[in-house]
Amino acid sequence: MALPQLLPSPSSSSFTPKPYLNPNSLNPTPRSLSSTPSLLRHHRRRKPNFLRCSASSFSEKHHTGSPKSDDVIELPLFPLPLVLFPGAILPLQIFEFRYRMMMHTLLQTDLRFGVIYSDTATGTTDVGCVGEVVKHERLVDDRFFLICKGQERFRVTRLVRTKPYLVAEVAWLEDRPSGDGEEDLDALANEVETYMKDVIRLSNRLNGKPEKEVQDLRRNLFPTPFSFFVGSTFEGAPREQQALLELEDTSIRLKREKETLRNTLNYLTAASAVKDVFPSS
């Protein structure tokens, strides 16, 4: 059976594609990316090669020592058909000349660039996430294999230049305190984790996998980085992921993710009931 359809909450109804939630991505297992543009492709030394994103990729504390939100800096940009979240791990292969030029510059500076979501239907967004090069390998033909980690979020304020690659002035984004100061974010995060575990359990059942107990998904993450981890698991739904990335309120982000997971769980429950009645379907 196909992966369960991710059913967005009413607040995300403006997103027309009907994406899918890959329960496997909630655990430290690979995920594929088939639509990477020519400027960047994933490492293909192993088959298959995947983007990995797991709870272990996320630091326990979010934005420790991060720049102030009113700081403005210049940042080289990579438009990609994916959304990078703070704490997520992204492997890339760089072979196009202009981006090899950029890598030579980055290796002599602070190893940071901006990943921004772009597609042919909606164009390029102005909110993205910094990718920091944590490991790199330069090949004899001057291609680069990179392992990057998501860091701070940013908003593009001004495009500085477009050639040989995009460079923009950016301002940092941080989650603001929730309007409801008494809301228990930790309890809300725990609810989201429970829905995630139920989604994994039912998905495994529908796909004929063992229904073993799902381990701790939060792994001591605070609510904000946990909300980014949850968003990173919504594979096949980049526009919904982009909407989650742009939110500046942890509570609102967790509630939106909770609603999406609850709708997905309802779908899975119905599918499971049908399978019980018609096992051969």
Rank of each mutant, 00 (worst) to 15 (best):
L3F: 05
Q5W: 10
Q5P: 04
S9A: 15
S11P: 06
S12M: 13
S14R: 12
L21P: 05
L26Y: 00
T29F: 07
L33M: 09
S35T: 07
S35M: 02
S35W: 06
H42W: 11
H43V: 08
R45E: 10
K47L: 07
L51F: 13
L51C: 11
R52D: 09
R52P: 05
F58E: 12
S59L: 12
E60Y: 12
H62N: 05
T64Y: 01
K68N: 01
D70A: 02
V72K: 03
L75Q: 03
F78V: 08
L82G: 13
L82Q: 13
I89E: 14
Q93N: 09
F95G: 08
M102P: 14
Q108F: 15
L111C: 14
G114Q: 12
V115R: 05
I116T: 15
I116C: 15
T120Q: 15
A121W: 04
T122Q: 08
G123S: 14
T124D: 13
T125E: 15
D126A: 10
C129N: 09
V130S: 04
E132T: 13
V133L: 11
V134Q: 06
K135G: 05
L139M: 05
V140K: 09
V140P: 03
F145W: 11
L146C: 09
I147K: 13
R153S: 05
R155D: 06
T157P: 06
A168K: 11
V170A: 01
W172N: 02
L173Q: 06
L173C: 06
D186T: 11
A187K: 15
N190I: 10
N190T: 13
T194S: 10
I200N: 02
L202V: 10
S203G: 11
N204C: 06
R205F: 07
K209S: 06
Q215G: 09
N220S: 14
L221E: 09
P225T: 14
F226E: 04
F228C: 12
F229Q: 06
L245D: 02
E246I: 00
E246W: 00
S251A: 13
I252S: 04
R253W: 03
T260Y: 07
T260H: 10
L261K: 04
R262Y: 06
Y267C: 03
L268P: 15
D276Q: 03
D276M: 01
S280C: 06
